[in-house]
Amino acid sequence: MKQQELTCIGCPLGCTVTVTTNDLPGPDGENILSVTGNTCPRGDSYARKEVTCPTRIVTSTVRVRGGTSPLVNVKTASAIPRDKIFDCMNAIKDVTVTAPVHIGDRILSNVAGTDVDVVAARNIPSAEV
């Protein structure tokens, strides 16, 4: 048996949730024996997910050519596995886009083999010539 303490991030309350697992590897969470300490159902599902496959939205910036700003901020369109964060950063490191850029424009597809796109999260108009 193994006990892991997590801080739930479902809301600002930040419950301390304890997840007890048996020693068998369980990629789908069947090894989870109990989840305690949460004060709402979101805490339960967060803790189960965090123990089996934690995911994060990654946000960063890429260079813009010909825009009113030298950078546009970008995000993964949905959460990607936590262990792919640095692969994602490497993939977007050398990307340059051309203005204008609009919120939601696809910057990279299937980043780091996650099936998730990286999209623009800001409007950057073309610089006036």
Binding site: I57, T59, S60, T61, N73, K75, I103, A121, R122
Partner: peptide, 19 residues
Amino acid sequence: CIHNGFGLHTFGEELTGPE
């Protein structure tokens, strides 16, 4: 503030600051 997490209460989704 290019990180996400803005607007959970107002729009029911996690936006970045510029969004």
